[in-house]
Design a protein around this nucleic acid. Structure first.
Length: 105
DNA sequence: CGCTTGACCCTGG
DNA sequence: TCCAGGGCCAAGC
């Protein structure tokens, strides 16, 4: 009840998907930052595992999620690159230059 | 209960 | 700027 933040509710994947849906088009976000925005700092790897379990029919912008190096790390790099380019994100050889999403706490 | 895998992150050379 | 190594965390077998 009132222990909303006292203990971690066992990493809610829905929480992460909610934050991912909050990311506007034309921007990209890193795994670690996305995890922090969801309320789980340091769970970058967990983010990747959740996204890897998402169906191909998902409406979530998983292609806007990149690693801290600005590289596209996903089994559908080609698809992600095309989508990002269409959204206006500058992508060069599986690597984004700018438009990096800036989350202000 | 313990080991391995994975859409990662950070520092140093 | 690019490459390599070590570390962190959770889920699966």
């Amino acid at each position: 009840m009132s222990d909303t933040q006292s203990k971690l509710p066992g990493l809610d994947s829905e929480r992460l998907l909610t934050v991912l849906a909050q990311v506007p088009p034309g921007c990209v976000v890193a795994f670690g930052d996305l995890a922090s925005m969801a309320g789980y700092p340091g769970r970058a790897r967990w983010v990747g595992q959740v996204l890897s379990k998402l169906p191909s029919t998902t409406t979530l912008p998983w292609h806007r999620v990149v690693n801290a190096q600005g590289n596209l790390t996903c089994p559908q790099v080609g698809l992600a690159r095309e989508r990002l380019t269409k959204e206006g994100v500058t992508v060069q050889c599986n690597r984004v230059s700018m438009n990096r999403y800036r989350w202000t706490p």
